[in-house]
């Protein structure tokens, strides 16, 4: 892994677009600095030899149990009750096309 250069403001803007986060200019700048620092810190682990090492996700040994194919009813009214906006029993959003 090569040394990370300081994140550019453009890179931060691109990420904010990808993450769908509206940021103010000052948020953008402070995040630019802080992310650069965190990533620079991370540079240290580049030296750890990880050849042939599989990335670890679930850290403990857990036996897999799948779910039987059985339908359980759920009171969807409780779900719809939280909708910011709806039409009948449908979620309403700004036009998507």
């Amino acid at each position: 892994m090569s040394k990370t250069e300081k994140l550019t403001l453009q890179a931060v803007q691109k990420v904010s677009k990808l993450a769908r986060l509206k940021l103010t200019d000052s948020e953008m700048t402070s995040i630019q600095n802080q992310l650069s620092a965190v990533l620079e810190n991370f540079e240290q682990i580049a030296q750890v030899n990880t050849d042939e090492v599989r990335p670890l996700v679930t850290p403990t040994e857990i036996t897999q149990v799948l779910r039987p194919d059985v339908v359980e009813d759920f009171d969807s009214e409780k779900i719809l009750a939280n909708a910011p906006e709806k039409a009948g029993r449908l979620f309403k959003v700004p036009p998507v096309v």
């Binding site: 339908v71 969807s76 009948g88």
Partner: peptide, 27 residues
């Protein structure tokens, strides 16, 4: 063509009332 959805117990069948085949997981 399973009875329930891939990751939860909501019905996977075609049709149903609007948002009727839902649960915390699939919403």
């Amino acid at each position: 063509q399973t009875n329930s959805k891939l990751f939860c117990s909501s019905s996977a069948h075609f049709g149903g009332g609007d948002n009727e085949h839902t649960c915390p997981n699939c919403t």
